[in-house]
Amino acid sequence: MIGELKDPRKTFGKAVSDLAEQDERIVVLSADSGFSSGFKEFAAAHPDRYFEFGIMEQGVTGIAAGMATTGKIPVFCAIAPFVTCRNYEMFRNDLGYMRQNAKLVGRNCGFTYSDLGATHHSLEDFAVMRMIPGVVVLAPQSPDEIRAASRAMLEHEGPVYMRIGNPKIPELYDGEREFTIGKGQLLRDGSDLAIISTGSTTVYALEAAQKLAEKGVSAMIIGMPTVSPIDEEMVLMAAKKVGKIMTVEEHYCRGGLGTLVAEVCAEKAPVPVKMHGVPQEYATSGPYEELLRYYKLDAEGITEVALEFISQGSFVL
């Protein structure tokens, strides 16, 4: 963990605004959600490129598709479940099937809107978005990475879904790293266990690696800010080199990163995969840190699950 904690929404809004200075095609759409997505300054600076629609995520997704057909690059950010589930068919048909160059960003993702309850949690956004052919699914892990991923998202030709959180988050490493869609990052080498994490949990996975080291367990940490398309090469490297993989995500443990990793392993390098995330239930509400602890997604929890997984040994068929 490096540097001061930064607000992911403000970081995202600023990143898009900076990029929009260079690219006139970028427009921002809001479903009464723009200001709370970090676009207050953008709206003031570019009133002709900021479009407010009120609370109509289905309509805005279709409108984004229509605008994209004219060469615009619409960016639409709102609370994650409302830009993935509420408008799913519009995302699937108008952006996916029509292959339109629009960017939808789910903020307050996972259960970061912890106390607002399950209506405002998004624990299936990876699962539903990855099923739309051609949609890139991103989950940057740090403020610098939000900036880099925003650039990559806007430079990519085609529909993208990116999720960002709500609580302030730390940098993971010094300086800005190159961000390539579809590429994972080897953040720490190890030999007993490979932990593949995405989004908000990667910082805790790194902390867990330190705790595991203290207990004599060498954990490889892979950051996977592109959930789909999954970095198959990186998964196979971990499978072949370490032979035991644990995935960590603030998402249902089925359907998301864990499933994508397991699919690669099942077909090309069958090794035990522990898919760690939120069980298939409507997550409880309360302070975010308590939810992280409850679902064992903080450093202590990840460490505990990893040790248990290690203790199980390998499959005996």
Binding site: V27, V60, A64, G66, E89, N93, D94
Partner: peptide, 22 residues
């Protein structure tokens, strides 16, 4: 536009009209 699922066309059309005008 790839239409067929009902209730999509008017939003897409509105987006086109907005994009063209802008």
């Amino acid at each position: 536009a790839n239409t067929g699922a009902l209730g999509h066309g008017l939003s897409i059309a509105a987006g086109m009209a907005l994009g063209l005008r802008s």
